[in-house]
Write a protein that binds this DNA or RNA. Structure first.
Lengths: 112, 112
DNA sequence: AAGATATACCTAAATTACTTAGGTATAAAA
DNA sequence: TTTTATACCTAAGTAATTTAGGTATATCTT
């Protein structure tokens, strides 16, 4: 992907949306899910993901549940009540952003 | 706008697209045009715009034409041949990005 | 049996695109 | 005459990332 930098600023929203859809996920699972959903177009790096998850948790948007599976640790994350609210807001902002950008780069085929 | 940070990484593409559509524009005009096109949703700051224009020029994507209008300077920018090519590429990347994000945050209403 | 790949977590320095906060100068409007 | 609009600019600070490591277990390949 040569357009990786366009995704700057959208990582939190992507994480929150995935957790809203899938209820609970662990970090590695999120990287794989995004790769699958985007057919390889977007690869979330772990250097970006883990700090982002820690920040969302520190901000009270996510709760953690640590589980040992096949002798390996997994940290499951899920949305808190605040996190669910924030997800709604961030998804609205994202939709607005996508609509505006679509309009800017291709006025003839606006989403509206 | 609370979603300003989503626009990170898209400034170059926006500038190039505007120049592809309007043939030649000067910096201040670009800020006003973007504000108008996005109904105030996106305000390009001059602190971001001017360095971006200088970089695009340094990279050979833009040519300058300085004009004195009503005793004030205007620096008109237009696409070079390389710039025109790059614009096509960047717009394709942007479309791909928008499609992918739309699919990610709202799989039910994908653009395809 | 060894080495590579996949799973699963992590951090820290460097990069980069931006925001913030200034600066200069002319013209028009309040 | 002071504010707003036009028109350019720079530099320090910020924040989200990339890059480049690290640890450890399980599985697949040769």
């Amino acid at each position: 992907m040569s357009n990786q930098k366009l995704y700057k600023g959208s990582l939190q929203t992507i994480i929150l949306k995935l957790l809203a859809t899938n209820h609970k996920m662990y970090g590695y699972e999120i990287t794989q899910k995004v790769k699958e959903l985007t057919k390889g177009e977007l690869q979330i790096t772990e250097g970006a993901l883990y700090p982002a998850l820690h920040k969302l948790e520190a901000d009270g948007l996510l709760d953690i549940e640590v589980v040992k599976v096949e002798n390996r640790l997994r940290k499951y994350y899920k949305l808190t009540e605040i996190g669910t609210k924030e997800t709604t807001d961030k998804l609205e902002e994202m939709q607005q952003f996508l609509k505006t950008m679509q309009h800017l780069v291709n006025p003839k085929f606006s989403l509206e």
